[in-house]
Design a protein around this nucleic acid. Sequence first.
DNA 1: CCTACCGATCGGTAGG
DNA 2: CCTACCGATCGGTAGG
Lengths: 200, 200
Amino acid sequence: MPRTIAKNHDTKRDAILKAAAKLFASEGYGRASMAGVAAACGISKANIYHYYPSKEALLFDILESHLSELRDRICGLTYDSDAPEDQLRVILTEVLLAYQGADAEHDVLLSATQALPEEKQEILRQYQRDFIYEGRARLAAIAPESVANDRAKLWALTMLVFGMLNWHYKWNSAADADTRRAHAKMIADLVIGGVPNLQV
Amino acid sequence: MPRTIAKNHDTKRDAILKAAAKLFASEGYGRASMAGVAAACGISKANIYHYYPSKEALLFDILESHLSELRDRICGLTYDSDAPEDQLRVILTEVLLAYQGADAEHDVLLSATQALPEEKQEILRQYQRDFIYEGRARLAAIAPESVANDRAKLWALTMLVFGMLNWHYKWNSAADADTRRAHAKMIADLVIGGVPNLQV
DNA sequence: CCTACCGATCGGTAGG
DNA sequence: CCTACCGATCGGTAGG
């Protein structure tokens, strides 16, 4: 009778994923070693290779798991209100909350994606496009027609707003949920009415 | 008569700095080799070590040169107008223009700073603080008192705005000066009046 | 004795 | 799930 897959297979895989993300974030993907990942997991290096065929495969799984979860959360949002401003507030808050606890994965995404072959990078870009388009639609709804109807300008605006979101971990990585909600509100106020009209 | 330092010593040092920045950005600091840096410069690896005692020293010089130039440009700005909005437009434009041609250095700053010892990182953080404070002062001048007089809120606002600036290279690294001016204007319009009042 | 380089190779460690 | 290794390549340095 063949041996079955360990009952904690997925649990262990997730543990490797999380430990590797933290190590890749803190040491850098290129300097971090597979032996270091193993040590962080309390298992042997050879055991890591039981779950992943290569260091690159491990990197890709970290990023794909992270981005697919982000996409599912953002694209699966339901909006109580039809008001464009309210919908923008909902999505901005959800993005910052979805980033909570995923600083390591986010950092690895920004600093190590280029280590992957182009085809893998394209898969990751598709996940990102999926949820960025959700944000773009909310921004188009509040933008003047001169922006909403101009693809390049609308994209620039979208990237500026995601710049605020994606930069957040650099200065507030340990933020709790309430802090994230407050920062999302500040971004929303800023986007909707500018700094002079910040409601804080 | 003793031989003098090569007349092209500084020129060559700058060439190494630029080539290394590009290689570190494209391959990642940890994966990039000193042999690769040497090859990109068309010189021997031993020759690199004549200019820099270690790979880490090379990394630090890339980042310090980059940040000191940024600081000098931003902190050395003179403002024609006393209007806070005009001053904000000037500094936002100057930052995006200062980033032009420095995408590699900017990328290395974000992805490899953690490879430096803490004391070196602190030196780099001081350069960044110097010019971020310039931006913060312009933002305080247009913010409501509830933000301008609250250190935490003013810092959050400042980081949001620098998020837009520092994220720019991710989606528009090849932007020319006019494009950068247009993006700086969009950020300024956004900050001053919100998306509904974008003037484009 | 100096600075400016070179080809060759060191001791260790990487991914697998 | 481990110890024991490999081909290769790393950052850094030798003599000249």
